[in-house]
Design a protein around this nucleic acid. Structure first.
Length: 116
DNA sequence: TAAGTGACGATCG
DNA sequence: TCGATCGCCACTT
């Protein structure tokens, strides 16, 4: 084998899957929980390279500011906004209030995630 | 090996 | 709040 870096992608994906419905998390937070602190950019790269055969709630991941990572007007941005609002998340001008909808993992949530 | 790139984050004005 | 800038790290060329 030449590279094993795929393990890191998988950790990102597994963490994203742990985000509860109706909640959102930031890229940095995901990277942190996945055991890759400071790799926020890598979290984005991992989502961008998500294979089409695995399903993850990628739309629950936002910037640390609560803003959607795509440019306003882009199809991806609109799609993400729609999916979030379907789950009851308030989205104002591509922005989410992290105070209300930000995911704050509890100990048991993390334990559940880590026992796969 | 070096330079370019990116679904980011923190800071500054 | 917004945009520009810099720091960041792994992948690609």
């Amino acid at each position: 084998m030449t590279k094993m870096i795929n393990q890191n992608y998988i950790r990102i994906w597994e963490t994203v899957k742990a985000i509860p419905k109706g909640k959102v998390a930031s890229y940095g937070q995901i990277a942190d929980l996945a055991g890759l602190p400071g790799r926020s950019r890598f979290a984005g790269t991992a989502l961008a390279n998500t294979p089409s055969d695995i399903k993850i709630p990628w739309y629950r991941v936002l910037r640390s500011s609560g803003q959607i990572a795509f440019p306003k007007g882009s199809e991806k941005a609109l799609e993400q906004k729609t999916l979030l609002m379907d789950e009851g998340v308030e989205v104002n001008n591509l922005r989410v209030n992290l105070k209300h909808f930000g995911w704050q993992p509890t100990v048991d949530e993390l334990l559940f995630k880590l026992k796969y």
